[in-house]
């Protein structure tokens, strides 16, 4: 009898858990130095961030948000970057094939905070909004780093012209 009730709990509990992780959000470990100094300020200890899926349910992001997205180069890999420009903006690039890029409709421009040590839109160009996976809300671990993530853009990385 206990076995049957265990099976029942797993059969119903598992989908509830997966649905929760899919629609509300989950916690993930940040690897790499590309978002220094906002995330992983020291290379030794890694930060865990809460990724909100709910915040991007209709694909709306703002300039300065930290988002996680599926890498355009490798669908198995998720990357975490900051949104620099949205559709219609003109952005001055750092080492992309064109010096100035107008972001097409349905795309955004993402960059890591650690300029020069990050693989971002300056390498692979604007990314489609459909690749956005979640929005990073706060650092949850380690406790000493417990804080919400600021929405900010470095002054020198603001788009040259913004659409709206």
């Amino acid at each position: 009898m206990w076995f049957r009730s265990l099976c029942r709990s797993v059969f119903f509990g598992l989908p509830i858990g997966i649905t929760f992780l899919d629609t509300v959000g989950y916690v993930a470990r940040v690897e790499g130095i590309s978002m220094q100094p906002a995330l992983n300020p020291e290379s030794k200890n890694t930060d865990y961030v809460f990724l909100s899926r709910w915040a991007v349910r209709d694909y709306t992001v703002n300039r300065g948000d930290v988002i996680s997205l599926v890498s355009p180069k490798d669908p198995n890999q998720k990357i975490i970057k900051r949104v620099v420009a949205l559709q219609g903006d003109v952005v001055s690039t750092l080492g992309y094939k064109n010096q100035y890029v107008k972001i097409p409709e349905g795309y955004c421009w993402v960059e890591g905070d650690h300029t020069g040590h990050t693989l971002d839109s300056n390498t692979f160009g604007p990314v489609s909004l459909g690749l956005i996976n979640a929005k990073a809300m706060c650092i949850v671990w380690p406790p000493s780093r417990w804080q919400s993530l600021e929405v900010k853009l470095p002054e020198n990385r603001k788009p040259i012209s913004t659409a709206t």
């Binding site: 694909y59 349905g106 459909g130």
Partner: peptide, 19 residues
């Protein structure tokens, strides 16, 4: 599982409009 082949018909999100 990344087991797509040439000739498969797929459903994808439109690159210019994710909805």
């Amino acid at each position: 599982l990344q087991r797509l082949r040439r000739g498969d018909i797929v459903i994808a999100k439109c690159p210019s409009n994710p909805k």
